[in-house]
């Protein structure tokens, strides 16, 4: 049955409100996970800073340019972290047969499944990322025009879509493979390389990160449009289209897996 966006938006809002309410009621849990998130981000930033204490530039990228890339990837990852976090437990649910419960609701299965979990910690990461972005933006003396902001938003969205696509596809592999955790873990580990300019990798890895495991589209190609507007490769301009295509494909893979799912014994 086709249901409008309005319907899904409305349902999501209600689930989210309830979910947040119940999360807040576990105060200690909420505080500890927030502290954990802050520590993770600080340590990530710290190792970044130490790196630049020793090297003035990486692959021809200055400290602030790298910082921009770093902030960009943090912000781009937020929607995946917040909205699609339930992908991580897909494997367990499919394996145990609990996934079957999602199959009986008259709405989009992908939506219903993902709507069940909203990871608040992602928001903190976003605040951190935006802070880093602004800091780098100011120091790089980038113009603050509407055109630049629009470019930033469009390319952030496409970066998020690529990220989401990778995660969806990796998670959906559990519909066919029993030990899919390694695949999901692998993709999530490689995503860390998204924070670095592709110029530091050798051509083989550059090829892999562009065409096989397209993490280069998470931060590198989109950032080029903003940081190096004078020499933007075609792939950068195309990255919004590529992002939409990748996301659509990953969604189709996910749904195909779910449609073929028939649960465990009883």
């Amino acid at each position: 049955m086709h249901r409008g966006l309005r319907f899904y938006f409305c349902i999501y809002r209600k689930i989210l409100a309830q979910d947040l309410k119940s999360k807040m009621s576990y105060r200690a849990d909420f505080i500890i996970s927030t502290i954990g998130m802050i520590c993770t981000n600080i340590s990530g930033f710290l190792s970044f800073w130490i790196l630049f204490q020793n090297f003035p530039s990486v692959g021809g990228w200055s400290y602030y340019e790298m910082l921009f890339l770093y902030g960009f990837s943090l912000v781009a990852m937020t929607p995946v972290q917040c909205l699609l976090d339930n992908n991580w437990s897909l494997r367990y649910q499919v394996f145990s047969g609990d996934f079957v419960k999602y199959c009986f609701r008259p709405m989009n299965l992908f939506f219903y499944y993902q709507s069940e979990v909203f990871d608040v910690k992602g928001l903190g990461q976003m605040v951190f990322g935006i802070g880093t972005l602004i800091y780098a933006w100011v120091h790089l003396e980038l113009a603050c025009t509407a055109w630049m902001v629009l470019k930033l938003v469009v390319y952030l969205v496409s970066a998020s879509l690529v990220m989401a696509a990778l995660q969806n596809a990796a998670a959906a592999s559990c519909f066919w493979i029993e030990n899919s955790f390694y695949l999901l873990d692998l993709v999530m580990r490689f995503k860390d390389y998204a924070k670095y300019p592709m110029t530091i990798f050798n051509p083989v890895f550059r090829f892999v990160f562009t065409f096989v495991l397209p993490i280069a589209f998470i931060a590198y190609y989109p950032s080029l449009v903003i940081l190096r507007p004078e020499a933007v490769p075609l792939l950068s301009w195309l990255s919004p289209l590529i992002a939409i295509l990748l996301f659509y494909l990953s969604y189709k893979i996910w749904m195909k897996g779910a449609a073929g799912y028939s649960g465990t014994g009883s």
């Binding site: 689930i15 047969g97 009986f104 609701r105 008259p106």
Partner: peptide
């Protein structure tokens, strides 16, 4: 999905309700 609107399903040990709500 259309069929889902006209049926209800209960599995003995698997709750279909929102766990934390």
């Amino acid at each position: 999905t259309r069929n889902a609107k006209e049926i209800g399903v209960v599995f003995g040990q698997r709750s279909q309700l929102w766990w934390s709500l």
